[in-house]
């Protein structure tokens, strides 16, 4: 306590902590779904078309559901730690194969909208802080509060209605058009088509997220703008833009980084809903389908991956602190 330690000790400590957290998550992840009363074989047992009770029993054996708890736990741990994730109860395909495309789709969506919302949030936040107390400041704050509070699925529905149903500018489902992949197209057509499909979901998520960054940037900038070195910079006759974006923003960006890292999990929740609105085949739609079908191996995989992402993001944010602000003492 109180005693500051070196960067190396700090990294070591954070690493150990992150691994411990991952182990906790692994255990809880297993417990949540293992204690769930839903029976994944019920689908087969209830439908003679799928083979009825006999097939259900066979599935139970195949999935290892009739094995004792500790054996199932070992299998689960092996699946998670090797990145194999087992086999989906519904599609019967190895999850490791199924997860890649969906993960990429979601990362694309979340990545693009996070980057855009951070840029928009920072620029507008700096403007709001600079013009504090003015009408444009109030409007910016109110609009970001509103878009932040509007349910993302509702926003998606409205965008879908206007830009897809009425104006027909953007597609309403999927990530690619059939014509763009069949016959084998040139890469330019393919990418344009992807972006065309990505636009509305990404816009929804961006609108949903930028408000938080705007408010945070505004708050930290207001604090920074009262510092002495800003006055010094002004006295030197530097351009206002240089002062705002170079001197002030650099120091105000620390909370932004933490916030972006912490909100990864939150953003993924938003992505689930957004994917659902636009029928965008990413992790979100997959999650919903898996929940609907009590496809527990898929849920294990998704929960684990999301947790890893959040933990990794937090870890990176902790380390970045030092890079951006060398004054920080670890401890």
């Amino acid at each position: 306590m109180g005693r500051s330690m070196g960067l190396r000790t700090y990294i070591l400590k954070r690493t150990i902590y992150s691994f411990a957290l991952i182990l906790f998550v692994l255990a809880l992840n297993f417990a949540i779904f293992d204690l769930m009363p839903g029976d994944p074989t019920a689908l087969f047992a209830n439908q003679a078309r799928l083979g009825g009770v006999e097939v259900a029993r066979a599935m139970e054996g195949l999935w290892g559901l009739n094995q004792p708890l500790h054996v199932r736990f070992v299998t689960y741990m092996r699946n998670m730690l090797t990145g194999q994730f087992g086999i989906s109860y519904i599609s019967m395909a190895p999850i490791a194969e199924e997860v890649t495309d969906r993960l990429l789709n979601t990362f694309l969506l979340v990545g693009v909208s996070t980057i855009f919302s951070i840029i928009i949030g920072i620029v507008l936040g700096v403007i709001a802080a600079y013009k504090r107390g003015s009408i444009s400041d109030s409007l910016l704050v109110l609009s970001s509060l509103t878009t932040y509070s509007v349910p993302s699925f509702w926003l998606g529905m409205i965008l879908l209605l206007v830009f897809s149903y009425r104006l027909d500018w953007f597609p309403s489902v999927g990530t690619t058009s059939f014509s763009a992949i069949n016959p084998a197209p040139n890469i330019f057509v393919y990418i344009t088509d992807k972006l065309w499909h990505l636009f509305l979901p990404a816009l929804t998520l961006t609108l949903f997220m930028y408000g938080g960054y705007l408010l945070l940037t505004r708050a930290t900038m207001l604090e920074t703008l009262t510092e002495d070195y800003i006055m010094t910079a002004r006295a030197k006759g530097l351009k206002e833009r240089t002062i705002l974006f170079k001197h002030a923003l650099k120091n105000a960006s620390l909370p932004l980084i933490t916030n972006a890292a912490i909100s990864i999990g939150f953003i993924l929740s938003g992505a689930i809903i957004t994917e659902q609105v636009f029928n965008y085949p990413g992790l979100g739609m997959w999650t919903w389908k898996a929940i609907d079908n009590t496809d527990y191996p898929v849920l294990h995989c998704i929960f684990f991956l999301v947790a890893i992402c959040v933990i990794a993001a937090n870890f990176i944010a902790d380390l970045l602190y030092g890079v951006i602000d060398p004054r920080i003492k670890y401890g």
């Binding site: 957290l21 998550v25 929740s269 999650t287 999301v306 933990i311």
Partner: peptide, 22 residues
């Protein structure tokens, strides 16, 4: 630590699971 674990689990899917499954 329990708080940390709950914070890193995806909130909405967890919520859906707990509501959807009796």
């Amino acid at each position: 630590r329990f708080t940390d674990v709950l914070l890193v689990l995806p909130a909405l899917p967890l919520l859906i699971v707990l509501i959807a499954v009796p």
